[in-house]
């Protein structure tokens, strides 16, 4: 006996373990995804392929099919979703933040913005955005940053760094630190002032979401940690809700597909690559 629990024998320990299976947590995956208690309004639950609430200071990761629609929701206004996406077929093709800002001639992420790889293709598109508070300049927190700011950065400690969590998420798909480029983050905004100063905006409040469409099979890595420029000295981050469902990749009927000549050619390159692969 340990306290009130009987784990003295294998059978008793098994019974003890199994009795825990129906417990719930504020942060957990919901399986099957169709059983999510938070299924997005207007989405057929049977189309869900991923439903999860990511813990503050937690991470998640998944391989999703082309056309998958991925919703990230900031439940409390304190989530910060640090995101990396990779071509699941050839993961050395991955998010390129410089091209993602330069090619659309726009530094700030918002609805219609493509997340581009370094190969001249679109990995994913931001297709809906009720937050408009995002950042593609600051990346995620490093261990060095979190040790200075919070005194600790260990992935299972009280203030994990985003890089530590993305590293773990990536390793689970065979990726190493060399495979991790600069990331983007959603829900905590940063703006560039005239002199180049990076000005913290914070969030747009609770309940906002961002929808991404996977334009090719993707490895998605998400770390939910405070934005590095968050001025609060405590490690403050809220839960991040993730839902994904089956859908269609961007096509000529979508406004963002031909919103600029650069983007249209990026989608053409993507389709060209996938069709040659039989996808």
């Amino acid at each position: 006996m340990v306290g009130a629990r009987d784990t003295a024998s294998v059978l008793a320990a098994r019974a003890d373990a199994r009795a825990q299976g129906s417990n719930v947590s504020d942060w957990m995956p919901y399986l099957p995804a169709a059983s999510s208690p938070f299924a997005p309004e207007g989405v057929d639950p049977s189309a869900l392929v991923w439903a999860e609430t990511v813990a503050p200071g937690g991470y998640t990761h998944k391989v999703v099919a082309r056309g998958t629609r991925l919703r990230l929701e900031d439940v409390t206004g304190d989530a910060c979703a640090h995101v990396l996406v990779f071509n699941a077929l050839e993961p050395w093709e991955r998010l390129n933040v410089a091209d993602t800002q330069k090619i659309p001639w726009q530094a700030y992420l918002g609805a219609g913005h493509p997340l581009l790889s370094g190969e001249g293709r679109v990995l994913a598109t931001v297709v809906a955005d009720t937050s408009a508070h995002h950042d593609a300049f600051c990346g995620t927190s490093s261990d060095e940053w979190n040790v200075v700011k919070y005194g600790d950065a260990a992935p299972q400690g009280p203030s994990p760094s985003g890089r530590a969590l993305l590293t773990l998420a990536g390793v689970k798909h065979g990726l190493t630190p060399r495979d991790l480029p600069p990331s983007v983050s959603f829900f905590q905004g940063v703006r560039v002032e005239d002199d180049g100063a990076l000005a913290w905006q914070g969030s747009a409040g609770p309940g906002t979401y961002v929808d991404l469409v996977a334009e090719m099979p993707l490895i998605v890595l998400v770390a939910n940690v405070p934005h590095p420029l968050d001025p609060r000295t405590d490690y403050v981050v809220g839960p991040l809700r993730v839902h994904a469902w089956r859908g269609d990749p961007s096509g000529p009927a979508d406004e963002h597909y031909s919103a600029s000549p650069e983007r249209e050619r990026a989608y053409l390159n993507t389709t060209d690559y996938l069709e040659a692969r039989g996808l």
Binding site: G118, G120, R263
Partner: peptide, 21 residues
């Protein structure tokens, strides 16, 4: 006055987006 580290590198691939195939 200032040096750039936002603009990234040009590539054959991104040239096709920026300037045409």
């Amino acid at each position: 006055d200032r040096q750039d580290t936002i603009g990234g590198a040009c590539s054959k691939e991104s040239n096709t987006l920026r300037y045409g195939h």
